[in-house]
Design a protein around this nucleic acid. Sequence first.
DNA 1: CCGTCCACCTGAGAGC
DNA 2: TGCTCTCAGGTGGACG
Length: 299
Amino acid sequence: MPELPEVETVRRGLERSVVGRTISAVQVAHPRAVRRHDAGPQDFAGLLVGCTLQAAVRRGKYLWLPLDSGEALVGHLGMSGQLLAFHAEAPAGPHLRVRVHFADSGPELRFVDQRTFGGLAVQPLVADRAAARHADGTSGPPLVPRGVAHIAPDPLEPAFDDAAFAAAMRKRRTGVKRALLDQTLISGIGNIYADEALWRAGLHWARPTEALRPIDVRRLLQGVREVLTDAIEAGGTSFDALYVNVNGESGWFDRSLDAYGQQGRPCRRCGTPIRRDKWMNRSAYSCPTCQPRPRSPRP
DNA sequence: CCGTCCACCTGAGAGC
DNA sequence: TGCTCTCAGGTGGACG
């Protein structure tokens, strides 16, 4: 379940189910699941055993569990990853990639991933330059795992800088949807919530970023924040059983989608049938009336 | 440096 | 039935 609201739903579940517990054993069933851990599966497991999980933290679509060793267990769900808190007796499906056992009698942590685009790693924490400006001085210098340092803050973090985002958009020579999906500009947004935010802002996906007016960027960020917040409240978007929380349960935001996957259905604002365009080997959904095509579109 | 494209995977569903 | 094709929520690296 891969965009920000789904990852946040998982983060909240991990906070309740595994934070504070001590790892007793780790099994890597598929080495590709830990390919971002440079030193290999053995080293990955060795670094985790004996550690206690300190917290559950998220930026964009990455989440991590700081360890008492000073490093962090970092996860990305890719297209089909799940983190599940299941009891050891629960049957293991064919896509179970990593198992984390704990010293207590509570549930184990499972990383399940059909397509194996996601993965886990143990990485050192480094200073977060983006958030440093906003440090409140009460919790020490803000840290992020090494593998997360390259992405921008997400729009729900205090560290996200609206003015810097607007300036970066003006400098870009691309379409607004491409920019929304660029995790180094703004993190956490994927194909669903990009289309939903653009629908809410009344912007076509091919609008050139350099021609966006300040009011357009304001509406866009407002649309982004509203849709992400609404989706978190609904437990995320689940089209099928691939996207579930740590207890294996689906979210229900799919019932609130206004654009994504809605082609042919009437726009909730104006009644015009939602259109689907092929775009970047993927799809872009929009309302032909509320989101008119720009005169000089950019891919 | 910047923008674009595709390989990396598995599985489901449509069409023939 | 079974083949081929398209599509799916993401990302990083190669290429121009």
